[in-house]
Amino acid sequence: MKTFTKNNLLVALMVFSGAASAFTGNEAHEFTVSGNLQVNPCVIDLPSTIDFGHINVDTLALSSSTSLIAGNTQVYNIQFTQCAENQMAQISVLGTGDSSDPTTLVNAATEESATNIAISFWDVGNAGKKNDVNTGSSAIYNVGQLLNDETSGSIHLQASLVRPTEAVAKPGNIAASAQINITYL
Rank of each mutant, 00 (worst) to 15 (best):
S63L: 03
S64G: 04
S65F: 00
T66I: 05
L68I: 12
L68K: 03
L68F: 05
A70G: 07
G71F: 00
N72S: 09
Q74A: 08
Q74N: 11
V75W: 01
V75G: 01
N77I: 00
N77P: 15
I78Q: 10
Q79A: 07
F80W: 00
T81Q: 14
T81K: 09
Q82C: 08
Q82L: 08
A84M: 02
A84T: 10
E85I: 05
E85L: 12
Q87I: 02
Q87H: 04
M88L: 11
M88I: 08
A89H: 01
A89C: 13
Q90P: 01
Q90N: 15
I91E: 05
I91S: 02
I91A: 02
I91C: 02
I91Q: 05
S92I: 07
S92R: 02
S92A: 14
V93Q: 10
T96K: 09
T96A: 08
T96W: 01
G97V: 04
G97T: 07
G97S: 09
D98E: 11
D98K: 01
D98L: 03
D98S: 08
S99D: 14
S99P: 09
S100G: 07
S100H: 05
P102F: 07
P102A: 14
T103D: 12
T104M: 12
T104G: 11
L105Y: 09
L105N: 13
N107Q: 13
N107M: 13
A108I: 06
A108T: 14
A109M: 06
T110K: 04
E111W: 03
E111A: 14
S113R: 11
T115N: 11
T115P: 00
N116V: 11
N116Q: 13
I117Q: 12
I117H: 09
A118I: 03
A118G: 06
A118E: 10
A118P: 11
I119S: 06
S120I: 00
F121S: 06
F121C: 02
F121Q: 09
W122V: 15
W122Q: 07
W122G: 02
W122M: 08
D123Y: 11
D123S: 09
V124L: 13
V124C: 00
V124N: 06
V124S: 10
A127H: 14
A127T: 15
K130I: 02
N131F: 00
D132Q: 10
V133H: 12
V133S: 09
T135W: 04
T135K: 02
T135N: 08
G136A: 05
S137C: 06
S137N: 15
S138M: 07
Y141T: 01
N142S: 05
N142Q: 11
V143G: 06
G144Q: 07
Q145S: 14
Q145K: 07
L146A: 12
L146V: 08
L147H: 04
N148C: 06
E150L: 05
T151K: 11
T151F: 04
T151L: 06
T151M: 10
S152P: 03
S152C: 01
G153D: 05
G153N: 03
I155E: 01
I155V: 15
H156K: 04
S160Q: 14
V162I: 12
V162F: 04
R163E: 15
R163N: 15
R163W: 14
R163L: 15
P164T: 04
E166N: 14
E166K: 07
A167L: 08
A167N: 11
V168H: 07
A169P: 13
A169Y: 12
A169K: 12
